[in-house]
Design a protein around this nucleic acid. Structure first.
Length: 660
DNA sequence: TCGTGGGAAC
């Protein structure tokens, strides 16, 4: 700018600036160059008596490029009202790009048509894009249909518009039409189609595009490969994406992020974290998108220390905490059993939306803090945030876990009456759980009878587990029958039913159910527990002896059980499925994965440190009793997250008040 | 003129 100003001054002295063409270059430089100055461009313009359309177009483009859309449109208005210059075909592309209002967009469309640019391909392409951005896909398509000379850009734009407006199926159809008409696609077309494949989970098309890329010699194109990776990830083919990723000559942050997210969505949290360490070794820094994915991994693993480390990293690297990242932080602290920090982080967030509030409500629900969850639910509405269907799932879960039957029912009614949200099967699932858990089995059955859809396995399993808690065999058999019809290969049904039989001492029936599992060759998912020590997540499965410190762990386990027996512990063998000798039952119990994880926690952390364990299944009653005692005898807080909620053990009691 | 990634639920 310093040099430009000198040139400008000389031009004024020599009179060269009064030549419109020469002056236009001064304006264009100031308006368009990185080092330019838009304000100066507009000042210079005021000194030009007869600016050309080129000069004015530069000003418009300058505002568009610097993301000042309002100013671009306002300047156009000035240009025509003051008659600065007549718009030409170069005026409209950047003008359309800056137009976000449909009404205004139509006016500009009208201008361009009156000026004779109706069939200019360049203008029509940007016009389509403008209509799409203004949310009028129909108009965008009308422009597309009427185009006589459609070029690659036209097709790519329309495909992109469909994808953007959540109609990936239509986008893919359009691409198919292109292929049929024998048209060549370019990189952008393919990126847009792949984005559509990702949204539509269309693996077939993604593979076809991949083949097309290989066969048409596109060479290495980072964005294209990145889009392909994402499509593979979203279609559940993470390893295909990983192959592409590993072979990329250069990896930008977006492709790292896609890979982190791919592994997280694939439930491979450890792999996501390993990959992050690899990225750090390469000296690449994460951004807010990276943090969201990694925090999600921590949430699933219950890796609080790692989560805290990421939180500190966000602060250290000055990563902007926007709503999505804020929500991920709240979710991480809540799901890692640190609800107090979750609440504090939540309160300090500058921006919260319905997802943020919902994450907190769900977090409180999981801790059994139903009343608090309801308080936040009301505070949220006072703050002007409208709850959605998922928020209500959280509210109902909160009521369910805290035994707030009446509140649950009233909120269930409130949902449709006041908020116009029709209850979905998820909401009915919560209600069945709520009623069943509180012992109202008949009411739960009646609700299932009267709901507008057929019960799914969540609903029926909720009923069945309520029957187990309350020892209602008749209702259990009815629920189990339906469940077995619906999903005969789900081991949970057999296990629950068999547990009900054995708790009622109907050993023969229990055995019969157990035999069915073997006969039908149904695979049991292994029960496993995770515990994080010094930032490393250790995994234990039932009866595990693969851990390097296994002998220490088993010694501790023995010590634990002996000390607890002295403190009054009697193993609860009634829920053990196996029809074996009493002693073996005791051994089977003592090998439950959470007991191993807790024993490991006791040997590998300082006295007094809280122990946090995450389980993939629900805790059994024996482990629950035992853990209560451990918390007293070993003077440790123990926080166990099971498949659906938290148990916070302290001084011999559990936060669930034995209601789970 | 057209292009890649992230947050809440039974």
């Amino acid at each position: 700018m310093k040099e430009l100003k000198q040139i400008h001054a000389q031009m004024l002295r020599t009179g060269l600036f009064f030549d419109a063409y020469t002056a236009s270059r001064i304006v264009a430089f100031c308006a368009l160059q990185q080092s330019g100055n838009l304000h100066y461009a507009r000042l210079a313009l005021t000194q030009i008596a007869n600016p050309t359309s080129f000069t004015c177009n530069s000003i418009i483009r300058g505002h568009t490029n610097k993301n000042l859309p309002r100013e671009a449109v306002l300047f156009y208005q000035e240009m025509i009202t003051q008659g600065l210059a007549v718009p030409d075909r170069f005026t409209f592309p950047s003008l359309f790009k800056s137009c976000v209002d449909l009404r205004e967009g139509k006016q500009l469309h009208c201008h361009s048509t009156k000026l004779g640019f109706a069939s200019d391909t360049y203008i029509q392409n940007t016009l389509m894009n403008m209509y799409s951005h203004c949310g009028c896909l129909v108009s965008a398509h009308k422009v597309f249909d009427k185009m006589v000379d459609k070029c690659v850009v036209s097709w790519a734009t329309m495909i992109g518009a469909y994808t953007q407006w959540d109609q990936p199926g239509e986008a893919i159809k359009l691409y198919d039409r292109m292929e049929i008409e024998g048209l060549k696609a370019n990189e952008v077309t393919l990126v847009n189609v792949l984005t559509a494949c990702a949204r539509a989970r269309d693996l077939g098309t993604a593979r076809r595009v991949h083949k097309y890329i290989d066969e048409n010699g596109f060479g290495f194109h980072a964005v294209l490969i990145t889009a392909l990776m994402d499509a593979y990830c979203k279609c559940g083919c993470v390893s295909l994406a990983r192959d592409l990723f590993d072979n990329m000559p250069e990896k930008n942050l977006v492709c790292w992020n896609i890979m982190f997210n791919g592994h997280v969505e694939d439930s491979d949290y450890e792999e996501a974290l390993l990959l992050f360490r690899e990225m750090q070794l390469k000296g690449v820094k994460g951004d807010k998108v990276t943090m969201v994915s990694l925090l999600l991994a921590c949430s699933h693993l219950g890796a609080l220390e790692l989560g805290k480390w990421l939180h500190a990293y966000i602060g250290k690297e000055k990563i902007e905490v926007d709503v999505a990242l804020g929500t991920a932080l709240v979710d991480m602290y809540a799901k890692c059993g640190s609800i107090e920090i979750a609440v504090r982080v939540f309160q300090e967030l500058p921006e919260k939306d319905v997802m943020t509030w919902t994450a907190l409500i769900v977090g409180l629900a999981m801790c059994g803090q139903g009343e608090k969850a309801l308080e936040y639910f009301h505070e949220m509405q006072i703050g002007g945030v409208t709850p959605d269907a998922i928020t209500f799932v959280g509210v109902l879960v909160a009521c369910s876990h805290a035994g707030l039957v009446d509140e649950g029912i009233s909120h269930f009614n409130l949902m449709s009456k006041t908020f116009g949200i029709q209850p979905s099967i998820e909401h009915y699932g919560c209600m069945v759980d709520l009623l069943g858990r509180a012992g109202c089995i008949a009411e739960a059955e009646e609700l299932i009878q009267n709901m507008p859809m057929a019960p799914d396995h969540f609903v029926l399993r909720g009923l069945l587990s309520a029957c187990r808690i309350h020892g209602n065999l008749e209702a259990a058999e009815r629920a189990a029958q339906q469940l077995l019809k619906l999903d005969p290969n789900h081991v949970g049904t057999y296990v629950l039913l068999s547990k009900i039989y054995s708790s009622l001492r109907k050993w023969d029936e229990a055995e019969k159910v157990r035999e069915l599992i073997a006969e039908r060759n149904i695979k049991k998912p292994p029960s496993c527990s995770l515990i994080e020590v010094d930032g490393v997540v250790h995994e234990f499965v039932k009866g595990d002896s693969s851990h390097p410190q296994s002998s220490e762990i088993y010694n501790m386990l023995e010590d634990m059980i002996n000390r607890l027996k002295k403190a009054g512990y009697v193993p609860d063998k009634s829920k053990v499925l196996l029809d074996v000798e009493e002693e073996e039952k005791e051994t089977a119990l003592s090998l439950h994965s959470e007991k191993l994880a807790i024993a490991f926690g006791l040997v590998s952390t300082e006295p007094g440190t809280p122990i946090r364990v995450v389980k993939n299944l629900r805790v059994c009653s024996d482990c629950h009793t035992l853990t209560k005692l451990i918390s007293r005898v070993y003077n440790r807080e123990i926080i166990v997250r099971d498949r659906i909620r938290f148990h916070h053990f302290k001084d011999g009691a559990c936060s669930c008040r034995d209601f789970w």
